[in-house]
Design a protein around this nucleic acid. Sequence first.
DNA 1: TTTATGGCTGTCA
DNA 2: ATGACAGCCATAA
Length: 106
Amino acid sequence: MSRATEPTYERIYAVVRAIPHGRVATYGQVASLAGLPGHARQVGYALHALRTDDDVPWHRVINARGEISRRADPGPEGLQRAMLEAEGIVFDRRGRVSLRRFRWQA
DNA sequence: TTTATGGCTGTCA
DNA sequence: ATGACAGCCATAA
């Protein structure tokens, strides 16, 4: 469990797991909630290193603009949107989410 | 050990 | 509204 040096990723995963169904959070938000303010990028890395079979709803984490960030592999990019829509998240014509409505408020 | 790399974010033009 | 710039810092090699 808690080692002296707790992995940063674990904290991030814990926060992401706490995101309710049908809600989204930004990278920066997750970082802050994980006790790592300013590490938004690391959150992205943590999710990137995440495995598909883990129980972490990585698809509920989007960037501050309310969009799905473009990453190296275009595959999961579309999948993420599909998964969010399946949870009731609505994307506008430009592929953006209304953070004002769907942002998770801890 | 050092170096390079970013699923980001905020500010400015 | 969009586009460019710099800053943040853990992980991987």
